[in-house]
Amino acid sequence: MPEPILRLAGVHTHIGQYHILQGVDLAVPRGGLAVLLGRNGAGKTTTLRTIMGLWKASSGSIVFDGHDITKMATPDIARLGIAYVPESMAVFSDLTVRENLYLAARNGPLDEARVDWICRFFPALKKFWHYPAGNLSGGQKQMVAIARAIVEPRKLLLVDEPTKGLAPAIVQSLMAAFRELKDTSTSILLVEQNFNFVRTLGDTVGVMDDGHVVHTGAMAQLAGDEDLQQRLLGLSLDSHQ
C-alpha cells in the first residue's frame, strides 16, 4: 500500500473549554476517497477544520504529503495543495460566480478548459456566470463552493456535507465529478450524511463517536455488513437510499 497522503495521529483539539477531538487517528489513501461518518456532534467538522489549521490541534500530529502541517497557518496549508469546502459554503455573496472562481485561481487567469470541465457537471454555473453568488439558491451556492475548490488542481480536497441542499440530479453530477477527480489522482476526505452517495464513492471509511475514531476500514466492508452499520451508526445504510 502506498503511503497515505494525509495521516492524523493522536490529534486532540480544544475549543475554549471543550475537548472536541480526543486522540483522532485517521489516514486518507493517496488518490482515494476517504469518508468520515458519525452522528451529529461526533467531531467530523472539527477534524476537517483542524486539518486545515482553522482550529489548532492541542497535541498529536497531522502529516500531509510528507509535510508536518500540525502548527502551520491555514494559507500555508492551502499552498501545499489542500482545498476545503465547508458546510456553510462561504461564497462571496457580492461577487459574481465568475469572480468567485477567479479569486480561487491563485496561479493566474482562469483555465477555460478546466472551467468547461467543471460546468459539464454543474451547467447552472454558466447560466448564472455573471450573477452575484448571493442571489443563488442554496444548492447553486454549493455548486459554486465546490467549483471554487477544484478550479485548479489540488492534491487533497476536504469536503463537508457536499450533497446538502442539492437536487438528486445534481447529486449524480457531483458523484461523477468526484469519480473523475479520483482518476486525476486527487485525494478526497469527505464528511457526508447521504450514505448511499458515500457507499458508491468511498474507498475507505472512518466512523467517529464523541471525538474518537472508533472504526476504520474499507467502505465495501461497512456497506455490506448491516450488523456493523447498526453497531457503529445505529442505522442501516439501506434505510437511507
Results as ranks from 00 to 15, higher is better:
residue 2 P to F: 09
residue 4 P to C: 10
residue 5 I to W: 12
residue 7 R to Y: 07
residue 7 R to M: 04
residue 7 R to G: 11
residue 10 G to S: 04
residue 11 V to Y: 12
residue 12 H to S: 03
residue 13 T to I: 01
residue 16 G to Q: 15
residue 18 Y to V: 15
residue 19 H to D: 14
residue 19 H to P: 03
residue 22 Q to A: 07
residue 23 G to I: 00
residue 23 G to L: 01
residue 23 G to F: 01
residue 25 D to N: 08
residue 28 V to K: 05
residue 31 G to F: 05
residue 35 V to H: 12
residue 35 V to D: 02
residue 37 L to D: 07
residue 39 R to T: 03
residue 40 N to S: 07
residue 40 N to P: 13
residue 41 G to I: 08
residue 42 A to Q: 01
residue 43 G to D: 12
residue 44 K to P: 14
residue 44 K to C: 11
residue 45 T to C: 06
residue 45 T to I: 02
residue 49 R to W: 01
residue 53 G to L: 04
residue 53 G to D: 09
residue 55 W to N: 07
residue 57 A to K: 00
residue 60 G to A: 00
residue 62 I to T: 08
residue 63 V to G: 01
residue 67 H to Q: 11
residue 68 D to I: 02
residue 70 T to W: 03
residue 71 K to S: 14
residue 71 K to C: 08
residue 75 P to S: 05
residue 78 A to Y: 08
residue 81 G to T: 08
residue 82 I to A: 06
residue 82 I to Y: 10
residue 87 E to H: 10
residue 87 E to T: 13
residue 90 A to E: 06
residue 93 S to P: 13
residue 98 R to M: 11
residue 99 E to M: 04
residue 100 N to D: 03
residue 100 N to T: 05
residue 105 A to K: 00
residue 108 G to C: 00
residue 109 P to S: 13
residue 110 L to D: 15
residue 110 L to H: 13
residue 113 A to S: 15
residue 113 A to R: 15
residue 116 D to W: 04
residue 117 W to K: 01
residue 118 I to F: 02
residue 122 F to Q: 03
residue 126 K to S: 10
residue 127 K to C: 05
residue 132 P to G: 09
residue 133 A to C: 06
residue 138 G to V: 05
residue 141 K to W: 11
residue 141 K to D: 15
residue 145 A to F: 08
residue 147 A to K: 10
residue 153 P to H: 01
residue 154 R to L: 04
residue 161 E to K: 02
residue 164 K to V: 05
residue 167 A to F: 06
residue 168 P to G: 11
residue 169 A to P: 00
residue 171 V to Q: 15
residue 173 S to K: 09
residue 175 M to Y: 07
residue 175 M to R: 07
residue 178 F to E: 00
residue 180 E to F: 10
residue 182 K to F: 04
residue 183 D to C: 05
residue 183 D to N: 14
residue 190 L to A: 06
residue 197 F to D: 04
residue 198 V to A: 15
residue 198 V to D: 12
residue 200 T to N: 03
residue 202 G to Q: 04
residue 208 M to E: 14
residue 213 V to L: 14
residue 214 V to L: 04
residue 215 H to Q: 02
residue 218 A to P: 01
residue 222 L to Y: 14
residue 225 D to F: 04
residue 226 E to V: 02
residue 228 L to K: 02
residue 237 L to F: 14
residue 237 L to M: 15
residue 240 H to Q: 15
residue 241 Q to V: 14
residue 241 Q to K: 12
residue 241 Q to G: 08
